[in-house]
Computed example of a mutant assay.
Amino acid sequence: MSAVAFAQTAPDSLQINPQSQQNAAQRILSGNVSSGVTVGGYGEITYNQPEGDNGTLDVHRMVLLFGYKFNDKVQFVTEVELEHVEEVYVEQAFLQYSLNDHINLRGGLMLVPMGIINEYHEPTTFNGVDRPNVDKSIVPSTWREIGFGVSGRFNEVSLGYQAYVFNGFKSVNSDGNGNITSGLLGGSNGLRGGRQKGIESTVNKPTFSAKLDYYGLPGLRLGLSGYFGRTQAGDDVDAITGADVGISMIGVDARYAYQRFTARGQFVNASISDTEAYNNLNGTNLGSQLQGWYLEAAYNLLPIEKQQQLFAFARYEDYNTHAGVEGGLVKNNAYDRNDWTLGLSYKIAPGAVVKADYQVKDNASSVMVPNQLNFGLGVWF
């Protein structure tokens, strides 16, 4: 037992300064344990009530975090996630070798550094019961793949960086005999159906991902992300025209905090090439451009000297998985969406939050989307 430590050594779920914010993996890696096992976790229980429909109660996710420090240079981090009680995934599993204070080599199953939520998705680190829809339909979170690369920080110039080579999205399913059985991309969720998640992932065209974070101005953190490459198809079908597409995704994000006020924003644009051939082959409706953005502001209603915090927040999102289309594909206006989310986040203790919000949803089509009331509990330790 003396070799086991807990990730709660420096909880920052109440820490609103984005310059010092850490996610679960970063907390484990930066812990002061000399060697041995580090244990932690996070989870959320949600209640979603659309207007006019039955509500849904869900143990949305429970995640167990484990880290092992072999020595001062070599560490291993993994997250084992249970979604909706019955689905089990490995969300991260990577080995890090620290060459020095500025260079860390990594390999394994890792988060793709795009935007804010994909890396900082613990429920006590964001407002709203559910993650922003931009981070579901465009990014798409939680997006992780197997790869290798390098990360580090240069505090003298207030710059952090990450650069990785990953396997990419899977674009089609096949029967192993040269026949495509289904296309995985398109619709309201764009690329989301192509996430391989480290599950017997196929790879024939590696992709490149990178991010820069600048934190040189008080209370402000800026991010610039990029992801470039092509999707993956199995050996038996990867030479078929239309079996894969090219992806160029760019994202910018910002987080700011001053006393009791916080704000954040994000913009992501993905240009998809060869979608006409892909849609013609697979009978899908993948757009040639996916785009989304949001702005959020929050204010702590409790005195700043109190440990507890009660944030009132408002977020506006605009996201479209048919921002552009190719060939004969007609834009589906139902995929051009916008949401207002208004709510409260009551952080009752370090690592524990109670949330409530109301979402006003709309799109560019004539089909009405029901508004929704949400409640949630979140923990991180």
Rank of each mutant, 00 (worst) to 15 (best):
F313M: 10
L290W: 10
V330Q: 09
K331Y: 01
D362R: 15
Q309W: 04
L342P: 01
L342Q: 02
A297L: 12
D318S: 14
N320D: 15
D357L: 01
A297K: 00
D362H: 14
S366E: 09
Q308G: 06
G287H: 03
Y358M: 04
L301P: 03
Y278Q: 06
G327Y: 09
N363I: 09
L310W: 10
L295F: 13
G343C: 08
A364W: 04
R337N: 14
A312F: 07
D336N: 14
P303D: 03
L302Y: 03
N332K: 06
W340V: 04
A364L: 02
Y335N: 13
D339Y: 14
L290M: 15
S366W: 02
A356I: 07
V325P: 07
L301H: 02
E296M: 14
F313W: 06
V353P: 11
T321F: 12
K347C: 00
Y316N: 08
N285I: 01
V353R: 03
Q359K: 15
L295S: 05
Y299M: 01
A314I: 12
G327K: 10
L290S: 12
L342I: 15
N300D: 15
Q308M: 11
N280E: 13
N338C: 00
Q289P: 04
A314W: 14
N332D: 13
Q308P: 03
V367H: 01
M368W: 02
A334E: 13
V354T: 04
Q307M: 13
F313D: 12
A334I: 00
A356C: 08
N320C: 11
L310I: 08
T284K: 13
I304E: 11
N279L: 04
P350G: 03
P350V: 00
V367W: 00
L301F: 05
N300F: 09
N320P: 10
Y299E: 02
T341V: 15
G328E: 07
N285H: 02
V367G: 08
V360T: 09
T321S: 14
W340E: 02
E296Q: 15
E317Y: 11
P303S: 01
N282C: 08
Q308H: 07
V353C: 03
L286R: 05
D318G: 14
L302H: 03
Y319L: 08
A334K: 14
E296F: 11
G324Q: 07
N363D: 11
L302P: 02
